[in-house]
């Protein structure tokens, strides 16, 4: 039934190169389009018109990218040069690496890995290190504060995130994303695990540092948080990483809870992307509606509400699975 794209090539390095090229191209275009979508959507929410350059304002992003690319890459005087330079790369890299695991169609997949979920949960944590290095290396108090907040937040929200994924693994008895999608043949898991989905979406919003959990870059408190000192394309990478992380989190939610590529009439890939972008629009809607939480309230929410709730959900799932 399914074909690993990587196995189509004789030489594994060429396969890897092609995979990375395709994913990078997709993520870049995707980030640009998502920035456009966010601008237009927020404009609609706020009774504005939004960007106007080109048809539907689409050229605005191209010009912005041109501006970012042509700007000088400044390094602050007392910054730790090495950390400062590798931080944006570390933030962006995990998403690129992990995007190859998603089964976008039922026939082709870049690589079907039998413990994909473990890999995803492990490697997606790396971007926290990137954010922390950005804050530490910048030698700026605002950046450091943002980085400290970010680390605490990401570690706290990773736990409910993982706890909300475990019930799916328990039901399907597999960790491959392809097999999880296959297991949702009769119904998507949103019907049996609605609480897990809600916890997952909330935690994923926090993991991607989106409002109302955007305290690491809270512009009214910390100016720009961990990327205060970044300019040019280094800042652009953080920007890209935010949107790539969004699509990554939403793709994971789509596979785990919404049945991945499954859907009537339309081709597989179309259904997959419809679901992903619907979730992204939801996350954008959050951002333009809610105020920001305070740091301690954010922590309290994770440890007092989300973790117990996901544990209870896990317990109930276990009991039901045992009985049935």
């Amino acid at each position: 039934m399914k074909t690993d794209v990587i196995q189509l090539f004789e030489n594994p390095y060429i396969a890897l190169g092609v995979t990375i090229a395709v994913i990078m191209a997709y993520l870049s275009v995707n980030a640009i389009m998502l920035i456009w979508l966010e601008r237009k959507l927020s404009a609609r929410i706020q009774r504005r018109i939004g960007p106007q350059r080109g048809p539907f304002g689409l050229m605005q992003q191209i010009f912005d990218m041109g501006k970012l690319l042509s700007k000088e890459l400044l390094t602050p005087e007392h910054a730790n040069k090495l950390l400062y330079v590798i931080a944006p790369i570390l933030v962006f890299a995990p998403v690129v690496a992990l995007s190859s695991l998603f089964p976008i169609t039922s026939t082709y997949i870049f690589h079907d890995f039998n413990i994909a979920i473990v890999l995803i949960l492990a490697i997606s944590g790396i971007n926290v290190i990137g954010i922390f290095l950005a804050g530490w290396g910048s030698n700026n108090k605002y950046a450091l504060l943002g980085a400290v907040r970010s680390v605490a937040q990401n570690i706290s929200y990773e736990i409910p995130l993982i706890l909300s994924v475990i019930p799916i693994v328990m039901i399907t008895r597999t960790m491959s994303l392809y097999d999880i999608t296959l297991a949702q043949e009769t119904y998507p898991f949103i019907l049996v695990q609605p609480i897990a989905l809600i916890i997952f979406i909330i935690s994923a919003t926090a993991e991607t540092n989106r409002a109302p959990f955007d305290i690491p870059e809270a512009e009214s408190e910390l100016v720009a948080g961990f990327h205060t000192e970044y300019s040019g394309m280094r800042f652009g990478l953080f920007f890209f990483a935010e949107y790539s992380n969004m699509i990554f989190a939403c793709a994971l939610a789509t596979v785990l809870f919404l049945g991945g590529w499954r859907g009537p009439f339309l081709p597989d890939a179309a259904w997959f992307f419809i679901k992903v972008y619907a979730l992204i629009v939801l996350m954008m809607w959050f951002r333009w509606t809610f105020p920001r939480l305070r740091f301690d309230q954010l922590m309290k929410f994770a440890w007092v509400v989300l973790v117990p709730l996901s544990l209870i959900n896990l317990l109930i799932t276990t009991l039901i699975l045992k009985i049935v």
Partner: peptide, 16 residues
Amino acid sequence: FLMDLGAFTPFLYAFD
């Protein structure tokens, strides 16, 4: 005030 709290949308409503 709401922008200080991180909500950007009421700001534009109020300005409107």
